[in-house]
């Protein structure tokens, strides 16, 4: 049997979070690992995914709705092929969190959210109570639907040469894409960054925040983070806050507390 990893990508590139999820998949010892790329115009991402070592094949499904990762469309692609897999993994990105429980419900299995450790093929550790406790759970379901906290795993290496197969895409009859407002940034994604420089309210204003934090982050190749209090004071833009529970970040398995904000900053 095998594991399916649903890739996190921007159609042109595969994000590092995918490599980390493949690493988690490898720890399940379930045999073959396939990657599913859902998107639109995502051939380049599929080709990139094929280079991750340890991958058997890459499946590429495309449609307009899949290009926007609409959960209903992702569900329609994944559920029919779920029987071929012991486990379906995706990074715990906002997309993964959006579609994974939906897939689990269709398969009548319990989703396992945001794991930080694979103990064995059916046992996992995940944070609960905003990281104030860690729960180790064992699943009795035949198919395990899991989201993986990428920063808790070391990325799988490149060097593979899997083949890419195109499969049928799907649409979402009841949901239309209206628009999006993405913040352009050349810095790493906050959720997956190795280094985060984080600022708080003491910086005073948005101008001061960017004047201090941006050059520092660029120098270190780091993502910029901000406490919820700073974000709520409209100091930096909302997309960079790291305080719980909107975005969590974890450097390694040694410091889960890094993902917690001082409780006084939440929900403020």
């Amino acid at each position: 049997m095998a594991v399916l990893v649903i890739a996190d990508h921007d159609n042109a590139h595969v994000r590092d979070t995918t490599h980390k999820t493949v690493a988690a998949a490898a720890q399940l010892n379930a045999g073959d690992i396939d990657i599913l790329v859902v998107g639109q115009g995502a051939q380049a991402a599929a080709d990139a995914a094929a280079k991750i070592s340890g991958v058997r094949k890459v499946l590429l499904a495309e449609s307009a709705e899949l290009g926007k990762t609409i959960a209903e469309a992702v569900e329609a692609v994944v559920v029919p092929m779920a029987g071929d897999y012991d486990a379906i993994l995706s990074p715990a990105s906002s997309d993964g969190k959006n579609f994974a429980p939906r897939i689990a419900a269709k398969l009548d299995v319990a989703p396992i959210s945001d794991i930080i450790e694979v103990v064995s093929g059916d046992t996992f550790t995940r944070p609960i109570y905003a990281g104030n406790a860690l729960e180790t759970i064992q699943s009795s379901d035949k198919t395990k639907v899991i989201t993986v906290r990428p920063t808790a795993f070391t990325a799988a290496e490149e060097g593979g040469s899997a083949k890419v197969e195109t499969i049928k895409g799907a649409d979402a009859a009841k949901t239309d894409f209206v628009g999006e407002e993405m913040v352009k940034s050349d810095r790493p994604e906050l959720g997956a960054a190795r280094i985060v420089v984080s600022g708080g309210r003491a910086l005073g204003s948005a101008d001061e925040f960017h004047a201090v934090m941006d050059p520092l982050a660029d120098k270190l190749g780091a993502a910029v983070g901000a406490s919820r209090a700073a974000v709520d004071a409209a100091t930096p833009p909302t997309t960079i806050r790291w305080a719980r529970p909107a975005r969590s970040w974890r450097r390694s398995s040694t410091s889960p507390s890094a993902s917690r904000a001082p409780s006084s900053t939440w929900p403020a």
């Binding site: 959960a71 569900e75 959006n98 429980p101 939906r102 419900a105 945001d114 609960i128 949901t175 529970p245």
Partner: peptide
């Protein structure tokens, strides 16, 4: 979107799936 005890972030998406309804999360 989630309960602050189990932090699963799952029930809304699962309810939508079981009902075959669309979902707008977060």
């Amino acid at each position: 979107k989630q309960a602050i005890d189990g932090d699963n972030n799952a029930v809304g998406q699962m309810l939508a799936a079981l009902l075959d309804w669309p979902q707008g999360t977060f």
